[in-house]
Amino acid sequence: MNPDVLIFGCTGQDGGYLSRSLIKKGLNVLGVSRSKKPNFNNLETLSIANKIKIVQGDLTNFKDIKKLLTKYKPKEIYNLSAQSSVGDSFKKPAETQRSIVDATLNILEVCREINFKGNIFFAGSSEIFGSTNKPAKLTSKIDLKSPYATAKYQSYLLSKMYREIYKINCVTGILFNHESPLRDERFVIKKIINAAIKIKYGNKEKLTLGNLSIKRDWGYAKEYVEAMQLINRSKLNRDYIICTGESHSLRTIVEKIFEQLDLNYLEHIIVSKELYRPNEIATSSGDYRSLQEDLGWKAEVRIDELIKKLITEEITHKYQS
């Protein structure tokens, strides 16, 4: 039986939650991994590792993608695969470009060649807006401050072009920061939570962080994958911003995390300018109102509840299991 949905990047945070959501809805999901031996940790954590078929495919290889889409003929495609760390993109700009831009172009060009009539969702990024003086809309100024942002903007433009010129049903959801227990320590909230819990359980080492004044719009990944589905299936065939509409400084996040563990963060952290990023974005927040007005989606989990969820899950998983 052909799959209803094909997901590139099914083993990552978003791919895992999206796969679980789709499976719960009774859909047949096919995952694609570049690796011959994919990491099943997230899928096992979500108890769906035995409910999803995964095949190998390289998004930077046009022939691989054409073979996959011709063979499996999915109704929906989600591309959540790519190098996903802004910090890593400064170290690996060429790899970042290939994994995002080449992958997007290959998917779109294959779909044009085979006359694909289904829906395609691309994961975009708020990084394309740079620092925002007010919540970003699709019409806001573009300000590219990293190799990652540059690649994501190219992907966004390619999708828009193929939609308008070739009438491909492709859309981009521009995602602001979103977290979950599935994140690894390359992402700052998970890094802070893990360190704070270790301190709570007796670790004497201090946590070293960079610029605490940066502000971000942080949401919950489990909610954001529901927005992805609404956007991909909408007859409006439009791009949307996925966010909470609220931004918080990293200092506030640190304080909230340590407070929930009955700790004073000032006693346990060191700020190092060596960890400041080049071209750091000062403030990032988004405007979700178009998504709410058109498709009825609004983030429900706010920052205090998100932090509580992440701390509870980490303690339960690592210290009480």
Rank of each mutant, 00 (worst) to 15 (best):
I189Q: 01
L175S: 10
V171R: 08
T139D: 13
I192A: 02
R163N: 14
C170G: 03
E179C: 09
K191H: 10
A149P: 12
Y153L: 12
A195W: 02
N169V: 00
R186A: 03
G173C: 07
N194Y: 04
I193N: 08
I174D: 04
P147E: 11
D184H: 10
F129S: 04
Y156G: 07
M161Q: 11
A123L: 15
P135M: 04
G173R: 04
L144M: 13
L182T: 04
L182H: 05
I128Q: 12
K134Y: 15
R186E: 06
S180Y: 05
G130R: 06
Y162P: 09
E127P: 04
Y162A: 01
L138T: 12
E185K: 10
F176I: 06
K152H: 12
K167Q: 09
S140E: 07
D184Y: 08
P135F: 08
I174K: 01
I174Y: 04
S146D: 11
T172F: 02
R183G: 01
I142D: 00
S155A: 15
L138Q: 10
I192C: 07
A136I: 07
Q154R: 13
E179G: 00
R186N: 07
Y166R: 09
S155E: 15
K198M: 02
L175G: 07
E164S: 13
C170R: 07
P147V: 09
Y166M: 03
K137R: 14
A123Y: 06
L175T: 07
K141Y: 10
G173H: 05
S159K: 09
I189L: 15
I174T: 09
Q154A: 14
K190Q: 14
D143K: 15
P135L: 11
L175V: 12
K141N: 14
R163E: 03
A196V: 03
F122S: 00
R163D: 06
F129Q: 08
V188R: 03
A195Y: 04
S155H: 11
A136Y: 12
S140H: 07
S140T: 15
S131V: 07
Y148Q: 10
T132Q: 14
A195D: 06
H178D: 12
I168T: 01
M161I: 12
G124Y: 09
P147D: 11
K167V: 00
V171S: 06
S155F: 13
T132I: 03
S131Y: 02
F122C: 11
A123S: 15
K145T: 07
L182I: 02
R186P: 00
T132H: 04
K198W: 05
I128A: 11
A151C: 10
E127N: 15
T139K: 10
I197E: 08
Y166F: 15
T132F: 12
K191W: 04
H178N: 14
T150A: 12
D184S: 13
I128E: 01
E185R: 06
D143N: 15
I197K: 02
I197A: 06
C170E: 05
Y166G: 02
K191C: 02
L144T: 08
M161C: 06
G124T: 11
K134D: 06
N194L: 03
I189G: 01
N177D: 09
Y153E: 03
G173N: 03
I192Y: 05
K134G: 01
K198C: 05
S140K: 00
A123V: 05
N194F: 04
Y148D: 13
K191E: 10
S131N: 03
F187T: 05
S146C: 07
A136G: 04
